[in-house]
Design a protein around this nucleic acid. Sequence first.
DNA 1: CCAAACTCTATCAACTTGGTAGGGATTATC
DNA 2: GATAATCCCTACCAAGTTGATAGAGTTTGG
Lengths: 177, 177
Amino acid sequence: MFCLNVRGGTLLQGAKAAIYSIIQIEFAERFPKVISQKAKYALRALVALARAGDSMMIGEIAEAERIPRKFLEQILLELKHHGIVMSKRGKFGGYALLAPAAQITFGAVLRIIDGPIAPLPCLSRIAYRRCADCRAEEECEIRRVFARVATSARDVLDRTSIADAVAAPEPVEAGAA
Amino acid sequence: MFCLNVRGGTLLQGAKAAIYSIIQIEFAERFPKVISQKAKYALRALVALARAGDSMMIGEIAEAERIPRKFLEQILLELKHHGIVMSKRGKFGGYALLAPAAQITFGAVLRIIDGPIAPLPCLSRIAYRRCADCRAEEECEIRRVFARVATSARDVLDRTSIADAVAAPEPVEAGAA
DNA sequence: CCAAACTCTATCAACTTGGTAGGGATTATC
DNA sequence: GATAATCCCTACCAAGTTGATAGAGTTTGG
């Protein structure tokens, strides 16, 4: 290995790294991970329905939760197709939860709207697929680490229901970077 | 609320939901979440460097880990800019870890390559941003739940180093959906 | 000076995301 | 049975991201 202690080198590296980090953070605009805008809308709509305890029209939900109306139509339709909500057509129609809010988990909604929760295809139970560039799955170091991430995420998402979200006002300690 | 127990309705809903689910799972092709292909390459390259314990040329790493060579160039450059690796140019040049493998965490690498780990901008410490459509952050149910997801993910990623990945062959129980 | 290696910037195709648009089907009411 | 309100469905689109590829520039050892 060539020398790590180039005179001044480490300090210079540190300064450069800091600058690059600042640039990156300053322009970090997108958070496309784990949960999409669409899933966020879906969860908010379900929370609204749970809180109302009654059926609501698309327009009502859209207005209350500030969700683009036509986009919400698609979302609710999808939730209906997957048996989360039911609908009634025609005048005075609307949407209502098909199951008690306590039985609708965040995980279920996320899987419907955003697809599998697992960070890698080789870690999904419901949509397992071997990674294209994987040689020996059992020896994959990356897989081993992300298996733990996936498990802990699933622990939270599959144990938390819409009812929990409506009820519990426990404080948030602003967390991960 | 209109009647939930339409005769036959629930069963039909169940069947439809099952069909929609099967379609969705069968065609689930992409796992763009938590970790990108690029970050996977970055981690694999670092693992290769750690295992070698010596400097390696881009070509060597690319071949050993089956990473597109020119793509790997960009990745290593980025890691260098952020102070993870150092490089030497010219004939017999190459890359080497700048810090011991035990000090390079998965979290650090992911933040460099993929950006903030937090699932929502309002949960990031390093790149906090208020959600565009958020009314009262403290009352946001979604935020509350995903704060827990983010914390647990960070717990794993910031405590696991490249050295851990190289060393520990603990078994994986195929986990989250 | 040359060849081998890293450095940097530009470009690109394919895909995803977040919506918009519009017509069709169903229902309550008059 | 007309009408208006509502859900149902499909098609389409702009902007952005991802996963590369290309190529010219710079440094180093011999």
